[in-house]
Amino acid sequence: MIVPFHHLLVLATLLFLLGLMAVLVRRNLIMILIGVEIMLNAAGLVLVGASALWQQIDGQVLVIFLMALTSAEVSISLAMVVYLNRRKKTVDVRAFDELRG
């Protein structure tokens, strides 16, 4: 291990929090999806780090699955963004509040 594991964790946490910030604060659907991507990457970083820590290959395998999952998620969510944009001519998440009680 080139660095202590917890330094890696700190880096991953920072990235994750940035992604979370984007998800929570931004109103643009695209930006929210970008935030999700960032968080997934942070998770991937932890997995790779763990793989290096215990010198096991499983963590890296999981990252591959994570990437496959992400691409699936992104393809569908972007399709929905297109759909929503077609419906309301906007990608502002505040416009889509039909579930309001």
Binding site: E37, V48, S51, A52, Q60, V63, I64, M67, S71
Partner: peptide, 18 residues
């Protein structure tokens, strides 16, 4: 960083896929 952590294949995919 992935490369540094000993995951060259993942690093390549990070670039290609992400």
């Amino acid at each position: 960083i992935f490369y540094l952590l000993g995951a060259p294949l993942v690093a390549a995919w990070e670039v290609i896929i992400y």
